[in-house]
């Protein structure tokens, strides 16, 4: 065999190998596409006949609500419930009421909803209850007890707890600024009530209460307003979960680090603020527990067990000290 023939044969062999490899690759890719295409890449649900619970929240992207979803999902898996998550941004009661009505007509087995105020919403809840669909409020409750149950923090208590934390770190007779989500929110007002009562007990006072409407930009604006309006503030408290980081960053920018910042609930930004020392402390709720307990309560109800009409989940405080202790504990 000459050198030329050998070279020729080798290149032909190489080409054949390339061809085989390409064909295999081609088929493999083709098969992958085929499996993606065959059911549009979606896994078909097994046991789609499970009872169906809908959890109507605000924003799934939010850390707090995300944890509620996780809890509810896990409980659903555990107790055999399909949990549907529905976001209704904002807090227009008409929209929320319409959603509740929609699920009532869609014959869900239970509704978990973050309550808002107003007759329209209450009517929707009432209708659902009347047609045999239990409504459980979560995180935020209604005034009246038309719903089956409430699962979430004891808001007045949480407010008092936070008041205690503030009292411990400021001198008597100080004035404190407050930012709430909305003054019309029962949840926020309950927190405020508790907070104010404890604060008053120590001779401190609330300078004013401003609304942030869960908007970061609004939180910043209201902080600036509070600092402008009341230069002698010793502390600013944010009662909704997005407030504290915004307040802390604004004060830092304004050079008013003498004003202590308190807030609600943990988020990466909040924890970072505590670590940096620009946030004094936060009161952390148990969103995962709320979600989990809400679904478990529905399961209990279906099984005929007696369930409380108010199920409070615990709260705990987070300060720089406790955070470091916790991190060291983890180590």
């Amino acid at each position: 065999m000459t050198r030329w023939t050998r070279l020729w044969l080798l290149s032909a062999l190489f080409l054949v190998i390339c061809l085989i490899i390409t064909i295999v690759q081609f088929f493999w890719t083709d098969k992958t596409i085929g499996s993606l295409v065959s059911n549009d890449g979606r896994s078909v649900v097994q046991g789609g006949d499970q009872p169906h619970v809908v959890l109507i929240g605000i924003d799934s992207q939010d850390e707090f609500w995300n944890n509620i979803h996780k809890g509810a999902f896990e409980a659903g898996k555990l107790f055999g419930y399909t949990v549907e998550f529905k976001d209704v941004p904002g807090d227009k009661q008409e929209e929320l009421a319409a959603t509740v009505n929609r699920y009532r007509i869609a014959h869900v087995d239970a509704i978990i909803v973050r309550a808002t105020e107003g007759r329209v919403f209450e009517d929707a809840v009432r209708l659902a209850e009347r047609s045999g669909i239990p409504v459980i409020t979560i995180d935020s409750d209604l005034k009246s007890t038309i719903r089956s149950a409430y699962v979430g923090s004891y808001q007045t208590g949480a407010g008092m707890f936070l008041g205690q934390m503030v009292n411990d770190s400021i001198s008597m007779g100080s004035s404190v600024g407050v930012i709430v989500e909305r003054k019309s929110s029962i949840q926020q007002m309950k927190r405020l009530d508790g907070f104010a009562s404890v604060l008053a007990g120590m001779g401190n006072s609330i300078a004013d209460v401003y609304e942030s409407n869960l908007s970061i930009v609004a939180s910043i604006a209201q902080t600036e307003r509070l600092v402008n309006d009341f230069p002698n503030l010793k502390a600013i408290v944010g009662l909704s979960n997005t407030d504290a980081p915004a307040i802390a960053q604004t004060l830092k920018r304004l050079g008013r680090t003498d004003i202590k910042v308190y807030g609600f609930d943990e988020s990466p930004e909040t924890l970072q603020g505590i670590r940096e020392g620009i946030i004094e402390g936060v009161l952390v709720q148990q969103p995962y527990q709320m979600g989990f307990d809400a679904v478990r309560m529905i399961s209990d109800k279906q099984e005929g067990k007696l369930t409380p009409s108010d199920h409070y989940t615990s709260v705990k405080s987070f300060t720089k000290k406790s955070l470091i202790a916790q991190e060291e504990g983890l180590k």
Binding site: N39, D40, R42, S43, V44, V45, G48, H52, T82, E84
Partner: peptide, 9 residues
């Protein structure tokens, strides 16, 4: 087809 996650809807 009842497919995750939209089958509930």
């Amino acid at each position: 087809n009842l497919q995750e996650p939209i089958y509930i809807q």
